[in-house]
């Protein structure tokens, strides 16, 4: 469009919408769709059976305190043991990935590709079924807790290894150079200077991984656990099938949210803080 046109010529030929009008139309449409969707759901749902299925207050009462003292406690234990095992293994895999020795890099790379590419459920089944079959007589130490730590940890390690590797590589090269110029060996510089800084960088993504693990711990369902070893998902499902009612599932779900929502909030806070620090 030429800039030499007069003001009159710049007016749209057809009476088009102004910017303000366009915004009003767009917003109005979006609200209309939203309201229509809510109304359609509210009208079509069978509220009576929903209340029966998901909000049996006497069932909710029955679930306490076991759902907290047993199921939530076990979920937390499984998650933490998987996280710790995964963190240690992930650290090792990350360092292997950065090694100057080729075979270490290859093994670490293959490990990461395999365990990121497989469904966590498959790995749980493998740990629960295939390992005892393949190595008869071997017991995974710690019983169910050990198995869960292994299953969760093997998956988590693959993701954490990549996170930690990225964190280590995000530490400026000058830090390693300064340490080496002071006489630190490569290994010592890694441990004293680079890794502590890398960990600050990876705390938010690792916390996020913790949230994912917390949810994935529900896969214990497929391991075959005793009554005492049940966690939230198994606890809820068992009770649901006993009573032919879905209320326990809803309550178990709320228990997950009780932990994951605050943790998610913490992650966002940490990310915001880390963002400020790098400025």
């Amino acid at each position: 469009m030429s800039t030499t046109k007069t003001r009159a010529q710049l007016q749209p030929r057809k009476a088009g919408l102004t910017r303000r009008q366009k915004r009003a139309v767009s917003q109005g449409l979006q609200y209309a769709v939203f309201v229509a969707a809510v109304v359609a759901l509210a009208v079509s749902a069978d509220w009576g059976s929903l209340r029966n299925q998901f909000a049996q207050s006497d069932l909710v009462g029955q679930m306490f305190p076991d759902i907290i003292t047993l199921a939530l406690k076990n979920t937390v234990l499984y998650t933490v043991s998987g996280f710790v095992f995964g963190l240690v293994l992930g650290m090792v895999v990350a360092l292997m990935r950065l090694s100057s020795v080729g075979p270490y890099r290859w093994v670490a790379g293959i490990y990461i590709e395999i365990f990121r590419g497989l469904p966590a459920l498959l790995i749980f089944i493998f740990v629960g079924v295939a390992v005892p079959l393949a190595f008869p007589g071997t017991e995974i130490p710690g019983g169910t807790y050990g198995k869960v730590a292994l299953g969760l940890g093997l998956v988590a390690a693959a993701y954490m290894a990549e996170t930690i590797r990225a964190g280590i590589q995000a530490v400026p090269k000058g830090q390693m150079e300064a340490a080496r110029s002071l006489g630190f060996s490569h290994a010592r510089a890694m441990v004293s200077i680079v890794i502590p800084q890398a960990f600050r960088i990876v705390i938010p993504p690792l916390t996020n991984e913790l949230v994912l693990l917390f949810k994935d711990s529900s896969l214990v369902l497929f391991l075959g656990v005793t009554l005492e070893e049940r966690e939230l998902a198994k606890f809820g499902r068992d009770l649901a099938s006993q009573t032919a009612n879905s209320t326990p599932i809803l309550v178990a779900g709320l228990c997950y949210l009780l932990v994951t929502v605050p943790l998610g909030f913490v992650v966002r806070r940490l990310e915001a803080k880390a963002g400020e620090a790098t400025k």
Binding site: P172, G174, A179, Q197, R200
Partner: peptide, 20 residues
């Protein structure tokens, strides 16, 4: 080389202090 570097101090353009 680590032993030799102990005898050589180095100062960088970007300081490279350990921020933690």
């Amino acid at each position: 080389i680590d032993a030799v570097r102990r005898r050589i101090g180095m100062v960088f353009q970007q300081f490279n202090l350990f921020p933690h």
